[in-house]
Nucleic acid binder design. Structure first.
Length: 554
RNA sequence: GCGCCCGUAGCUCAGUGGAUAGAGCGCCCGCCUCCGGAGCGGGAGGCCGCAGGUUCGAAUCCUGCCGGGCGCGCCA
């Protein structure tokens, strides 16, 4: 019974462990983990299942572990070389040469679909991100949201979900009016109004718009032209950053299509709307919010919240099953009311997810750059890219959990550009490319022959077993990719990929040190070249998820 | 005052119940007749904020406290 090229050998191994645990008739085995022991001498993989089962079986965990070990000996057969019980009841598995050979073959058979997931139930996910007001350039803070949101979108796609990237354009309302007034003031040669936009770009924009015949008297027109000009700039910046949207959803469209009225009508119909003090309110306290919220102000204008309800209702009507909406930390107080609004519409609020983006401080010369858009005193994403490049910018911004505020030290990012972590990973990729070129597997004219080579190497019978510890360590690392992608996608945690990429690069460098590839004995060379091909694809895939390039040469 | 987030090595941060807590940077010591030294190996450096609790086992879960960030508008 050969099951060659199992698409995910680790998943298969985990399934065997779970099946064996279930066979012991205890409850609670479902939470069992399959992980790597802290020391390689302890085994290739380890499970804690016995300790979880012990209470239900009313038996000492060591004893349960021994029974589990016996069951696994039967089910794993020749895949396992040895199975131990250790410590309080860990079951440690040492896998055989055969298993390693099959695992290598499976990596190569996966081709460029490496890491691709197939969830039990693929979801339609709408990732709305950046959504910065079109009243100024993209700031670094918004850039972090862009890097994060785009990586989450890429992750969800690779994990097998259907993803739409959307930018919500606040091209209506108070801020746009202020923006228009600021432009008009500059056209007259005046200072912008109190609370207006003081940035130099406003003056430049005023000049451009005047040259194109815009009038300083028509604020609606100025607002429209001004926000459209900024939108184009924003789009260009994000494009440069490697971020592209499937759709730009205009707030103005909500008004034009009477979607706000429709949303409020539905809320009223469902009995959650009331009027007092001349305003129209939504009773969000009924759904866990700590105070009720205004939908229509006493002056008759809908609030931002009302527009946002209409927008999210529209997302639901477009059949989005999950609404992933990274928000700046200063908006986190907004989440309970949005959840309440969705609940009031009869929508499960858990479909709405708002990961909170904590601050990123740009530090230069030991000082924090200020980033107030209205005061025009900020670092733009374009400036950051000019400074440290797209790859470093995306790598650094995704490196840390979205939930953690961190300092991005420009001096460090610049001066470290030789020893930058991003180059560490990219260097591994370039080195791999070089080895494959040397071996003739990369082909002189490009990577075309690499795939053909991989296919021929995917026949496990031609491969030597990975015998060296460094080979096995690298192989096991590569096998983790599907699980890493799944976990990172589920947790909306692309920063895990950085850690994985670094670990993969480190394992590769150790392998490179210990294992001669080109010129090794025939089966060994084939196996090692196969490992190189798979490693190169793994690194490229992982970096690709972060939007970082994988150079063939550096 | 209330709510959310954070507190882990000198610095920036990983680690959402497992074995002796990790990475990068910085510091110290080694390694290029050999597939790329943008690399590798070794070392120093930790009351995982504090105090209780839960359990076979806690950086991880619960409670309280201390410290920091961000919110608490008929602004967006």
């Amino acid at each position: 019974m050969t099951a060659p090229a199992d698409p995910d050998p680790l998943a298969a191994l985990r399934a065997s462990v779970l099946a064996a645990a279930e066979g012991l008739d205890g409850a609670g085995g479902g939470r069992a983990t399959l992980e790597r022991p802290p020391k390689p001498e302890l085994g290739d993989y380890s499970t804690n299942a016995a300790m979880l089962l012990a209470p239900a079986l009313a038996a000492p965990s060591r004893e349960v572990a021994e029974r589990l070990r016996d069951a696994l000996r039967g089910s794993l057969g020749s895949s396992a070389e040895r199975i131990d019980v250790a410590g309080p009841g860990f079951v440690n598995v040492f896998l055989s040469d055969r298993w390693h050979r099959e695992a290598t073959a499976s990596l190569l058979a996966a081709g460029d679909r490496l890491g691709t997931g197939r969830p039990e139930r693929p979801l339609r996910v709408l990732v709305e991100f950046v959504s910065a007001n079109p009243t100024g350039p993209v700031t670094v803070a918004a850039g972090r949201g862009a890097a994060y949101g785009d990586s989450v979108a890429r992750l969800l796609e690779l994990a097998g979900h259907e993803v739409e990237r959307e930018y919500y354009l606040n091209d209506a309302g108070t801020q746009v009016r202020l923006f228009a007034e600021s432009i008009a003031a500059r056209m007259r040669g005046d200072e912008p109004p109190e609370g207006g936009y003081a940035g130099e770009y406003v003056a430049e924009l005023a000049g451009e718009l005047a040259a194109r015949g815009a009038s300083g008297d028509d604020l609606d027109d100025l607002g429209r032209r001004g926000t459209e000009a900024m939108r184009e700039r924003i789009e260009a910046t994000l494009e440069r950053f490697g971020v592209r949207f499937d759709s730009w959803f205009s707030e103005r469209r909500l008004y034009a299509a009477k979607l706000i009225d429709a949303a409020i009508a539905e809320l009223r119909e469902r009995g959650h709307v009331f009027e007092t003090e001349g305003a129209i309110w939504l009773r969000t306290t009924e759904f866990g919010d700590d105070k009720d919220r205004v939908l229509i102000r006493a002056d008759g204008e809908p609030t931002y919240f009302a527009a946002d309800i209409a927008y999210h209702r529209d997302k639901i009507e477009r059949r989005a099953e999950r609404l992933v909406t990274p928000l700046g930390a200063d908006h986190h107080g907004y989440i309970p009311r949005m959840r309440a609004a969705l609940a009031a519409l009869g929508v499960d609020p858990d479909r709405y997810e708002a990961p909170i983006m904590q601050l990123v401080n740009i530090v230069e010369g030991g000082q924090r750059a200020r980033m107030s858009k209205r005061e025009g005193d900020f670092v733009t994403l374009d400036e950051l890219i000019d400074d440290i490049g797209v790859d470093a910018a995306r790598f650094f911004m995704v490196q840390r959990s979205h939930d953690t505020a961190f300092d991005l030290d420009l001096d460090l990012a610049r001066s470290a550009s030789q020893d930058n972590p991003v180059y560490y990973v990219q260097y591994a990729h370039a080195r791999l490319a070089s080895i494959l070129r040397k071996a003739g597997a990369g082909g002189a004219g490009g990577g075309g022959d690499e795939a053909a080579f991989a296919v021929s190497a995917a026949d496990e019978s031609s491969l030597a077993a990975a015998a060296e510890p460094a080979e096995r360590a690298l192989l096991r690392r590569l096998l983790e990719l599907p699980g890493e992608v799944r976990t990172a996608a589920e947790r909306r945690a692309p920063h895990r990929l950085i850690a994985y990429a670094m670990a993969t690069a480190a394992d590769f460098h150790a392998f490179y040190r210990d294992c001669r590839v080109v010129g090794a004995e025939r089966d060994t060379e084939a196996a090692r070249l196969g490992l190189c091909v798979a490693t190169k694809r793994t690194v490229a895939t992982t970096l690709g998820l972060i939007g970082v390039g994988s150079p063939e040469r550096m």
